[in-house]
């Protein structure tokens, strides 16, 4: 599956035909892949009693779209990403990617965890390269791809560093590079900036936006930061907890990049914040 994808020639994609290094063009794939999540529900068994975590979730991610999912902790947003990534196959409903049901992890769908999950015994470079260990690409191409993605996330000069030698923010960039190096059609981000300090966070949000504009990959990002969600998302999905369910879908309708102080952004922030001030009654009798 992965093999046939590599041979496919790049087709028209937005915002990235111009300054691309050749290696990316070689391995690049066609991004017209749509993600459809339809009526997905999921519950965990705690002490042999089902505890619902997701209830009737439906969403569609158009190719190249940036969707942000915002919600309080415990609303099942990470679980939803794990389902889409194929790490957890035990759910009700339907998840279709490119028209086919998701049946397990695939290199078409990248995932960035909240903790960077780099292997501490591999250098930044080796960590990124580990992502295509299962793909038959020649070494020269691999080297070029790694080099380009290190440049993409701005880690030049840290290729040979071990994860403990770089800051948390840099490790998370490396994790993003690892997820992108396979040129996935969609990138799932599970609170990737949750563990970095506030200043780095603002900076990395802009970096993420730049990367998204540069690569045109579909992104779904989970966050509990409303400003982040509105600043980055084409569409913001608000999740309410226990069980996790969609309470509002907002189409931002502003071009990217955006100005944080834009009055429309501030208005949307207020609107979403309102969602959390009067939540639906919480059902504690789990």
């Amino acid at each position: 599956m992965a093999v046939s994808k590599i041979v496919q020639l790049p087709t028209a994609n937005r915002a990235r035909e111009t300054h691309e290094p050749p290696s990316i063009a070689v391995a690049r794939r066609h991004h017209a892949t749509e993600l459809v999540v339809r009526n997905v529900s999921k519950s965990f068994n705690i002490d042999r009693r089902p505890l619902p975590v997701l209830q009737d979730i439906s969403l569609v991610a158009q190719p190249g779209q940036f969707i942000t999912i915002v919600g309080a902790s415990g609303c099942g947003k990470s679980t939803l990403l794990r389902l889409i990534a194929g790490l957890d196959r035990d759910f009700e409903g339907e998840i279709l990617f490119g028209g086919r049901p998701v049946s397990g992890p695939s290199l078409d769908r990248g995932l960035v965890f909240q903790d960077h999950r780099l292997f501490p015994w591999l250098t930044i470079e080796q960590n990124i390269a580990s992502a295509f260990s299962s793909r038959p690409i020649d070494t020269a191409t691999k080297r070029l791809l790694v080099k380009d993605h290190i440049a993409l996330v701005g880690l030049n000069g840290f290729e040979k560093a071990y994860p403990h030698q770089v800051s948390g923010g840099m490790a998370q960039r490396a994790a993003i590079a690892r997820a992108l190096v396979n040129e996935p059609d969609i990138l799932l981000l599970d609170e990737p900036l949750g563990a970095v300090d506030a200043l780095t966070r603002l900076y990395l949000q802009e970096e993420l936006q730049r990367i998204w504009l540069q690569k045109g990959v579909t992104m779904i990002m989970v966050t509990h930061d409303i400003e982040e969600a509105v600043f980055l998302g084409d569409q913001v999905i608000v999740l309410q907890p226990r069980p996790g369910r969609i309470s509002k879908v907002i189409d931002v309708g502003l071009t990217q990049p955006r100005d944080r102080e834009d009055s429309r952004i501030l208005k949307l922030k207020k609107e979403i914040l309102g969602e959390f001030h009067n939540p639906a009654p919480i059902n504690y009798s789990i």
Binding site: A85, S106, S133, S134, N182
Partner: peptide, 12 residues
């Protein structure tokens, strides 16, 4: 955490 990364990138 490591098992999942291995599964995600389909390590042989």
């Amino acid at each position: 955490a490591y098992r999942e990364v291995a599964a995600l990138y389909r390590f042989k």
